[in-house]
Simulated scan of single mutants.
Amino acid sequence: MSASLVETVDIDAPVSVTWALWSDVTKWPSFLSHVRIVQPLDDRRFAWQLSLPGADKNFVAELTEVVPENRIAWRTTEGVQHAGVVTFHRLSDTSSRVTLQIEYDPKGFMEHLGALTNLDSTLANYDLGEFQKLAESSV
C-alpha cells in the first residue's frame, strides 16, 4: 500500500528567501522535526537520518530535479522508499507559497498507523509551520 500527503503553507517572505532556505540541505534539521542529520554525499545524493516514533530510519535520497526558485524533487535510492517534491510559488514581491508532496510506502505497524490517522499530514504541517517561522524571521 502506498500513501501520499500534500501540505501547503503561505509565507510572508519572497520566493528567493524560501528557496534559499529549503535548497540548503544543512538547514533541513532546523525545520524538519523528524530529520536528525542530512549529509551530502555528492552534488545530487544525500544520506538522511530520521528519528520517528518507534523507529529510526536511515536512507539515501537523490535529487531528481532542481529548478531554481521553482521546485526540488527527490527519491530514495537506499532504505525507506519515498519520493517527494517541494514547489515554490510567488504570491507577491514579499510573499510565497510552498507546497510539499510526498509519496511513500509505509512499512511496519507504526507507519501504517501514521498513514491511517493522518499523523504524517500533521507532522508535515508542523514542519511547514516551522519552515514558515524560519523564513519569515530571515526577511
Rank of each mutant, 00 (worst) to 15 (best):
T94V: 09
R75T: 11
V80Y: 10
L116I: 11
K107W: 01
R36W: 02
S121E: 12
E65H: 12
L50E: 08
K57S: 13
L52K: 09
D93H: 08
R97N: 03
W22A: 13
S23H: 12
H89W: 01
G84K: 11
V38C: 11
S16K: 06
Q39G: 01
G84F: 10
E78M: 01
W48Q: 07
S96C: 08
E62N: 09
Q39S: 12
W48E: 05
A47L: 13
S138V: 01
V139F: 02
L32T: 04
E111Y: 00
F88G: 06
S16C: 00
I102F: 02
F88M: 06
P68E: 14
H82Q: 15
W74F: 15
N58H: 15
V98P: 08
P106T: 09
V38F: 05
T77H: 02
A3Q: 04
Q39K: 15
M110D: 03
S51Q: 13
L91F: 01
E78I: 03
K107I: 14
W22C: 13
L32K: 00
N118I: 01
E103M: 06
K27I: 08
L123K: 11
L50A: 09
P53E: 09
S137H: 10
I37W: 00
D42F: 06
A135W: 02
V86W: 04
V15F: 01
V35A: 11
V139K: 10
A115Q: 10
F88A: 06
A55G: 08
L116S: 13
E136K: 05
I72Q: 10
R90P: 07
W48L: 13
I11T: 04
H112D: 03
G108E: 06
S138Q: 12
S4V: 00
Q39T: 15
R44E: 13
P40L: 02
R75G: 07
L119D: 12
D105A: 12
M110E: 03
E7G: 00
V60A: 07
A13D: 04
S96N: 08
T8W: 02
D93K: 08
V9I: 13
G84N: 06
E69R: 14
A83W: 07
L123E: 10
P29K: 07
T76M: 05
D43L: 06
I11P: 05
H89F: 03
T117Q: 08
A83F: 01
A47D: 11
S96W: 04
V66F: 03
I37K: 14
V139R: 11
A13T: 05
K107L: 12
E65L: 12
T87R: 12
V35G: 01
I72Y: 07
D43M: 05
Q49T: 14
S96E: 05
S51D: 14
L32P: 00
W22P: 00
